[in-house]
Design a protein around this nucleic acid. Sequence first.
DNA 1: ATGGTAGAGTGTCTA
Length: 259
Amino acid sequence: MAQVRIATWNVNSLRSRIDRVEALLDRHEIDVLALQETKAREDQLPLMGLQARGYDVAAAGVSQWNGVALISRVGLEDVQIGFPGMPGWGDPVEPEARAIGATCGGLRIWSLYVPNGRKPDDPHYVYKLDWLARLREAAGSWRDTPTALVGDWNICPTDDDVFDVAQFRSSTHVTPAERSAFQAFLDDGWAEVTRAHDPGYTYWDYYRQRFERDRGLKIDFVVASPSFAERVTGAFVDREERAGKGASDHAPVIVDLSA
DNA sequence: ATGGTAGAGTGTCTA
């Protein structure tokens, strides 16, 4: 294989956008696609079109919210739902469904949907920081393998990642604690590999024609271990996927690696 | 401060 192409996308319901997913795979010749907010149980997924294209699928989630999945045509082995230490880890009901990992073509890919946090004074905000701390703890043992933590981090690490910082003064995504939680991964030796190639936003709220006015956030990232990062040759945000009727509120982020 | 839109499913919740 000359190169490998990995993508991550908060699809905001896989069932309502299965046609867009299949078109995305075809358009960009994606080898591994990590999805978030699939909003479906594994048994609800429409798999025929994906299987016809040669893809394997692993998913976790319930029908109403959250949910993560991995779609791969380069192997899908050692699938793990959640990680040790994660809130809810060991619960057979899988109430959260925010993390699924698998080995695909020799790479360990984790599709992550970091808790939103809701409001800085909401208990869910504390839960978000706790979740990130536990992920960091688990990720310590993955860092020496070619691993990527991809998905919707629900954090804007810099002011450039917000269309209007003043408007977010009392909001989540930009607080010092959230930014510190993100920075902690970088301090541990992980690298965010998409920004250098494409600094653009990845999410635009459905409200108020935010996409048309390019008032977005950069919150979807590929956080790579050193042996993954050194193979990255390019990355881009597929903004066209966000345009028009029936789009997710996030755009896909695509990363290329040398073989 | 509020509300705007979208998706899960019929009650509201979540983002």
